[in-house]
């Protein structure tokens, strides 16, 4: 049962990876691709690590730390990339 759940999580994560990374090859704007990457790299990788956590519960401290750092760093990197890649149009005069 746990094995099945863990495989489900990993497969869901892989589907997220492929779905979110695929738009990188297209000709959309950087920000649009960033939405896809936030699905793939943050949520997909988190699903994969939860899958691993179910398989190998004795390593939980490391995996929980991995989950936390994944969520925080990827999100903040998304924000930094969005901030840096757009021009400051200077609304605030």
């Amino acid at each position: 049962m746990v094995n099945f759940l863990s495989y489900t999580c990993i497969v869901v994560g892989l589907v997220f990876w492929y779905w979110g990374t695929w738009p990188l090859l297209g000709q959309r704007s950087v920000l649009y691709k960033l939405h896809g990457l936030s699905v793939a790299d943050t949520l997909g990788s988190m699903a994969i690590i939860v899958g691993l956590l179910l398989r190998i519960p004795q390593e939980w401290p490391l995996l929980v730390l991995a989950l936390i750092s994944l969520a925080i760093w990827n999100t903040v990197l998304g924000y930094v990339l969005a901030y840096c890649s757009t021009e400051d149009r200077g609304y605030d005069g």
Binding site: V30, S45, S85
Partner: peptide, 17 residues
């Protein structure tokens, strides 16, 4: 350059997972 940065960010996460 920004499309490349996106790709690199993606590679970094995927390899560490």
């Amino acid at each position: 350059i920004w499309q490349r940065m996106l790709a690199f960010a993606s590679i970094a996460t995927k390899t560490s997972v």
